[in-house]
């Protein structure tokens, strides 16, 4: 299992508690900066002080554990949560959750939420003038299997307008939330669709400097998971921070405020 705690256990006799193997830090440019002025909501919410670099301790290399019993079949099939079928194009969204060493992250919780086919969220604050679907809530969760695989059946979400700037529209996307093996491996992201013409204009998609990192948020159409006469398949693999292979120094290179 790709967990720093296993490294900790293995290395305990020689390493002692002085240096704990932590999780890898993000590669510069592959993550959004907190302040991204073209995403207007970040202007009054992004911290102004530099973050304080924190060596990983037992507190950061452990994290919440959710058993497989937390997920039932209904939770991963968003088209069967009501008496009738939701409107829209059925899709299968599947993939693997891996760490940075390409090892699967098994038995970890994956949560998703999304707009319906018309681009409307089942949420009191969504003012978009598009119909709600009585047969679609738009949320689900699943636990990865022993190979790190997850699979959702859902509806392709619609694009929707938002107030960020004149004629702003979000590309179609599904929100993802993952825990991984530790507090340090938590991830919340969004999955996009290949060929969506709105992607180049979206400030949220474009808030990450590294183009390759951005493009990894775009899922790929996939024949293999497409079900004949039923649903199109899209693949979206997710990579969580991997553990350090060597014990970390207790002081980093990062800023200290």
């Amino acid at each position: 299992m790709p967990r720093a705690v296993d490294m900790l256990l293995r290395g305990r006799s020689s390493v002692g508690m002085n240096k704990i193997p932590g999780y890898r830090r993000y590669i510069p440019g592959t993550q959004p900066r907190h302040l991204h002025p073209s995403y207007v909501s970040s202007i009054k919410r992004a911290p102004q002080q530099p973050l304080v670099w924190l060596p990983h301790t037992l507190s950061e290399i452990t994290g919440p554990v959710f058993g497989a019993e937390i997920a039932d079949v209904k939770a991963s099939d968003l088209t069967r949560q009501h008496s009738g079928e939701p409107v829209g194009e059925r899709i299968i969204v599947s993939g693997r959750v891996l760490d940075e060493s390409a090892r699967p992250v098994p038995h970890t919780l994956v949560e998703i939420w999304q707009a319906n086919a018309a681009g409307r969220y089942l949420h009191g604050n969504d003012q978009h003038n598009a119909p709600l679907d009585p047969n679609f809530t738009g949320c689900g969760h699943a636990v990865t299997d022993s190979e790190g695989r997850y699979r959702f059946v859902t509806i392709r979400p619609g694009e929707y307008p938002w107030g960020n700037h004149h004629n702003a529209w979000r590309p179609a996307h599904i929100h993802f939330s993952l825990f991984g093996p530790a507090f340090a491996t938590r991830l919340v992201t969004q999955m996009y669709f290949q060929g969506d013409p709105l992607i180049p204009f979206d400030p949220i998609f474009n808030c990450t400097d590294d183009e390759k990192a951005r493009n990894r948020l775009i899922s790929q159409f996939d024949w293999e998971t497409t079900i004949p006469s039923q649903a199109l398949g899209y693949r979206f693999d997710i990579v969580l921070s991997g553990c350090e292979s060597t014990p970390m120094e207790t002081h980093g290179h990062g800023e200290k405020s």
């Binding site: 890898r24 993000y26 590669i27 592959t30 993550q31 959004p32 995403y39 909501s41 891996l98 760490d99 940075e100 060493s101 390409a102 949560e111 998703i112 939420w113 969220y121 089942l122 949420h123 604050n125 969504d126 809530t137 738009g138 949320c139 969760h141 929100h175 939330s177 991830l187 919340v188 992201t189 969004q190 949220i204 998609f205 808030c207 990450t208 590294d210 390759k212 990192a213 951005r214 990894r216 948020l217 997710i238 990579v239 969580l240 921070s241 991997g242």
Partner: peptide, 23 residues
């Protein structure tokens, strides 16, 4: 083999749809 970790994105304004089951 080394893969870069997936990029973060905001939870947006409607996360309660996805998060409230686990409050």
């Amino acid at each position: 083999m080394s893969l870069p970790a997936t990029t973060w994105q905001t939870v947006g304004p409607f996360f309660s749809i996805g998060f409230s089951w686990l409050y």
